[in-house]
Amino acid sequence: MEEPLFLPADGRRLFGVLHQPDGESRGCGFVFCAPFAEEHKQGYRVFVELARRLTAHGFPCVRFDYRGTGDSEGPFTDFTLAGAIADIAAASAFLRERTGVARVGLVGLRLGASLAWRAAAEGQDVARLALWQPIVDGKLFYKLNIRRMLIRQMMTAGKAEGERATQDKTAIDLDGFLASRTTCEELKELDLRTGDRPAAATLLVQFAHNTEPSGEMAPLVDALGGEDQFLPLILEPFWQRLGYVDCSVAMDATVAWALEREGAGAEAPA
């Protein structure tokens, strides 16, 4: 069963979709941590499909839009990394309350994976982390977003115009998404190579043209513990493609990992 709804977070209403198994639920559910801006758009449908696959195997899931994004309350400039981490906590609390799961895992893609890592490292009660190609170096990611905008300008007008701020200079146009100065600074400061690593059992998925850990991913791979798993996939970065990319192998592997962590077989609970 899928239920569109609004969940509460710091006095705001966040739009979400609650996925509940038709049969009995397992004791673990998953909160989906979405990527940022253009990557959110490109990755949207894959997250829907992954949530459905996990739910079919007995894991309740909630997908939601951070404050200021998607259908949640507030303008895009309300989005901050700190606020998004608080929203993840709110979504986790909501999932526990509505479905009765004892354990919550976080599934994150790109910036969503980084936020999931940070949420767990900062002490949120997170039992599992499935991280799909997290942003490790926020400075590089910020630069990537500026690059994306410059290339779009170039493809449209033949030449890039450069970085664009709003008239009041309080926000930067990141290719159609107005990011506040606070968010830009938070992005530049984001660095998963520093600080505590989360204690939660982790699946780290890399999408690349080969199976070697990329330069950005290598420090996270080195930080993985014995209970964790690194899964390098030779697969196109679907969040950076206009066309369809078949992500079944990544989704199947994530479901298999979730089942394995529960000590369960592939069948849904009766």
Partner: peptide, 10 residues
């Protein structure tokens, strides 16, 4: 396209 060109730039 623009997103593939971004991949080339990176």
């Amino acid at each position: 396209d623009s997103v593939r060109l971004l991949e080339i730039v990176v």
